[in-house]
Amino acid sequence: MMDIRDLYQEVILDHSRRPRNFGRLADANCEAEGDNPLCGDRVHIYLRIEGDRVTEARFEGRGCAISMASASLMTDMLRGLALDEVRALFQHFHAVVTHGESAEACDWIDLDKLNVLSGVREYPVRIKCATLAWHTMKAALEGKRTPVRTE
């Protein structure tokens, strides 16, 4: 059995205590809201896209340590990525939280940042906490107007 600290790694606790990129992005041109009705977690993702590149990413929201850390880590990673890289990163993230690691090699970004979230795979009811920000970000890119729901 995993130790509880494999889920609550220091990086996760640090990001949840001091979330990076927290707060509204005034000149966002792409945004979406998501919520997890099961636990009341809410997140609002703001992106600034210029050409085919994310130039700024921020978020607002409230929720558990996992959901806040995931949003914080994600917004950190998104800045500067091309949109097709964002989509590839989403796939990597998905693999990490469901299988523990991504089978695909990746040479354009450090996937270790994602790996700190791999602990959630042992906690099926908590996976949605980790995925909320990512699905909301995806919905923002796809221009969805209705809030994302994890249920």
């Binding site: 609550y8 340590a65 996992i66």
Partner: peptide, 13 residues
């Protein structure tokens, strides 16, 4: 400083 879901997960263990 600790969300109830995190409390719930930790004490579940």
């Amino acid at each position: 400083g600790i969300h109830p879901h995190d409390v719930g997960t930790i004490i579940d263990r």
